[in-house]
Design a protein around this nucleic acid. Structure first.
Length: 729
DNA sequence: AACGGAAATT
DNA sequence: AATTTCCGTT
């Protein structure tokens, strides 16, 4: 009986699979968190709470301990763990919910994309709006859905690098089976693992890793480059309507999963074209491949299964929840529907109501038990706010405040047309980076205050704190070209610091302080920040959940950003697109406007004080010295990157995400590929993307829903759950 | 408590 | 690449 639903929140199964993270061989923290979150056993330690995707670490020390156990890092503590979580901010996987202790929030968009870049809902979406716009106003009309380009869809941004990466990683993992290094037998992970498997939560969805892999092993090599895989291909592969490989229902277990989805988010079959096309080899990543595992109901064709035992699935329940969530979030939480539209498979985690108090503690850890009892009690008492049960997502109404800030249609003025808009790009911050002084160096040079010395050496402008970067940061329109990049920089830099080599190091970052709304529920802002999908908006996206510091916006082309700050405005800012909308990417801008602001109205439950565990902090051990490295990207490159990006955007309006996080190589690669592909499509829109959405959802949800249903079915057929055993230790 | 830079580790 | 470790700052 532990379905995701029980827990109250549900992510697609894959979300919980470590393997779903392309980039990592080992389990990733976010994944681990998700794991904990899904288990009731750990609800005393960490649990969903508050807004969509928001969770609270009730017992930081315990979480840290568990994490440490999992990673075989006995010295893990919350401080370290939290550092890792903070790294997610930039990656936009997570955000901090300000004002709430130990409270963070997931950004599902990111997760989805990261995990399933190939799942391109946009195709679906492009043809049809998948769900209702947050605000039923006529606004929807203004949005058009640009023809999607396959390439686009797949084009990942930062995190989603090419699916290829995923492939390889997966392959790798498969090859190795499992990672382990921890000699420590007592891994906490076992706890978790047990829980997962033991629970049988997925009723069979979970794959039994053991059984199945019939050896399909190697086949998944994609024949087609992932990028090229068209939506059609995707679906074909899934076995469109025809459902080549067997009926879903045929298998026992499957049956119930496949029941009709009342609310499927998906529109009609995505395969516009030659329906008849037989499926060709699945170009998809292994993860996608449908594994013909025995338990999989809808296993398409046996041949396809690349990965043994791995599959991921979109089950109806999830879908349903997703929809509900979607609606709810849209209406209640003010989340960006865009996100969901893109990834219907995501389900909203509902702060679930504790009725099952009893269940909680017994299981997993005796160790935690003590704590649990206390905490548990408190917690339960604590949250009272209920969210509407997932009953009737479809129409519901917004809570009182949700307010539709924009009663009037709110065309995205910001939507730019390809050529028309001035390339106001986001201003970038150029920070001088102080010469790296390694810890060693610091130590070596002056043990006492190495840090300061480093700063001073940096340039005379010791003023800049790492965070603020005000001291030497410059910001200006992204129009670097005009700035003549290097020239500008060099100028400023000249005064500034030079690295040992003599080259100035400058960090170019987008200034996204726009959000700056301390007042405005920081939480959400970022969360839906336009991520991958919204790439067009990305430049301006508030990438830092906390924009705490500087609000300067020096000259930065005073353009748009500085305007009134109403909710609307804020949002606009957020979504402001520097470049024209990328053609296939985000079919639904519609919703862009409204939501962010709405949610803050919701009173959040104050998390209970949760007594912090004391936990002694273990002594840290000094790592062995390593080779010194400098990670600064050469100035040139930075500019280049920037520049090319701009161009790209103009040309193709591709998304761009310039996070420092992202390595330029990737971007470059991406850019190029994208650029080529994209060109074609913009034609339609000529300027504004006028192509009207196939279905306007002007106002009603109904139509879309129907469509969704269909797709859902297809997906069901096609999907499989990803499960790889990944026990580490 | 939370943030984020820097270096080290895996 | 994703942390882990350390740590100064806010």
């Amino acid at each position: 009986m532990k379905t995701p639903g029980d827990t109250g929140f549900a992510f697609p199964e894959w979300a919980y699979k470590p393997e779903s993270s392309p980039g990592s061989r080992q389990i990733q923290l976010w994944h681990f968190i998700l794991e904990l979150l899904r288990k009731e056993e750990y609800h005393d330690v960490i649990a969903w709470q508050g807004d969509y995707g928001e969770f609270v670490i009730k017992d930081p020390d315990e979480v840290a301990r568990l994490w440490g156990a999992r990673k075989c890092k006995p010295q893990m503590n919350y401080d370290k763990l939290s550092r890792a979580l903070r790294y997610y901010y930039n990656k936009r996987i997570l955000h901090k919910t300000k004002g709430k202790r130990f409270t963070y929030k997931f950004n599902f968009n990111k997760l989805v994309l990261v995990n399933y870049p190939f799942i391109d809902m946009s195709s679906t979406g492009s043809s049809v709006p998948q769900s209702a716009p947050p605000v039923p106003t006529g606004a929807g009309t203004h949005f058009r859905f640009p023809p999607s380009t396959p390439s686009e869809v797949l084009s990942p941004n930062e995190d989603l690098r090419s699916p290829g990466g995923m492939f390889s990683s997966v392959a790798r993992r498969m090859a190795r089976g499992s990672v382990s290094d921890c000699s420590d037998g007592t891994s906490a992970n076992s706890e978790i693992e047990e829980g997962n498997t033991g629970a049988g939560e997925e009723r069979g969805e979970r794959v039994v890793s053991g059984g199945g892999p019939g050896g399909g092993g190697g086949g998944y090599r994609s024949i087609i480059h992932p990028r090229l895989a068209s939506h059609e291909a995707l679906f074909r592969m899934y076995g469109g309507p025809g459902n080549p490989a067997g009926h879903p229902g045929s298998r026992g277990p499957a049956a119930h999963r496949i029941h009709p989805e009342p609310l499927s988010p998906f529109p009609a079959s995505p395969l516009p074209g030659p329906g008849g096309a037989s499926l060709l080899a699945p170009p998809l990543s292994p993860a996608l491949s449908m594994t013909p595992t025995s338990h999989l109901p809808y296993t398409p064709s046996p041949t396809l299964s690349p990965m043994l035992g791995s599959h991921f699935s979109f089950n109806p329940e999830d879908m349903k929840r997703y929809l509900q969530a979607h609606t709810q979030s849209v209406y209640n939480y003010g989340l960006s529907p865009r996100a969901f539209l893109q990834y219907p498979n995501i389900v909203i985690p509902q702060p679930h109501r504790p009725d099952k108090a009893g269940l909680t503690a017994e299981r997993g850890a005796a160790e935690r038990a003590e704590r649990a009892s206390t905490v548990g009690g408190g917690e339960r008492g604590g949250d009272r706010h209920h969210h509407p049960p997932l009953g009737h997502p479809t129409h519901h109404h917004p809570h009182p405040h949700s307010a539709h800030p924009h009663p009037h249609s709110h065309p995205m003025h910001h939507s730019l047309h390809l050529g028309e808009e001035p390339p106001h790009m986001s201003p970038f911050k150029f920070k001088l980076q102080p010469p790296p002084l390694g810890r060693k160096q610091r130590e070596g040079q002056s043990q006492s205050k190495a840090r300061q010395s480093s700063l001073s050496s940096g340039s005379g402008s010791g003023s800049m704190s790492s965070t603020s970067g005000l001291g030497s940061s410059l910001s200006f329109g992204s129009d670097l070209s005009s700035a003549s990049g290097s020239g500008l920089i060099s100028t400023s830099s000249s005064t500034q610091s030079l690295n040992s080599a003599g080259l100035p190091k400058i960090k170019v970052e987008p200034i996204s302080d726009i959000d700056s709304e301390e007042e405005v529920e920081v939480t959400d802002i970022s969360d839906e920040d336009p991520d991958e999908r919204d790439e067009e908006f990305e430049l301006f996206a508030p990438r830092h959940p906390r924009a705490s510091d500087h609000h300067h916006l020096p000259n930065g082309s005073a353009r748009a950003q500085q305007q009134p700050h109403t909710d609307e405005d804020l949002e606009e800012d957020v979504f402001k697109a520097p470049a024209p909308p990328p053609p296939g990417l985000m079919p639904f801008f519609t919703s862009q406007y409204t939501h962010s602001g709405v949610h803050r109205m919701l009173p959040v439950i104050k998390s209970e004080p949760a007594e912090p565990g004391e936990s002694s902090t273990p002594p840290s051990q000094p790592p062995a010295a390593g080779a010194p490295q400098t990670k600064c990207i050469p100035l040139k490159l930075r500019f280049k990157r920037r520049w090319s990006e701009d161009q790209r955007m103009e040309a193709s309006q591709e998304e761009s995400d310039d996070k420092k996080v992202r390595p330029e190589e990737e971007r470059e690669r991406e850019r190029q590929s994208n650029g080529q592909m994209e060109m074609e499509e913009d034609g339609t829109g000529s300027g504004g993307g006028d192509s009207p959405p196939m279905l306007a959802y002007e106002g009603s949800l109904a139509a879309p829903l129907a469509l969704h249903r269909r797709v859902t079915a297809e997906l069901h057929r096609a999907t499989a759950q990803l499960s790889l055993e990944n026990k580490d230790c």
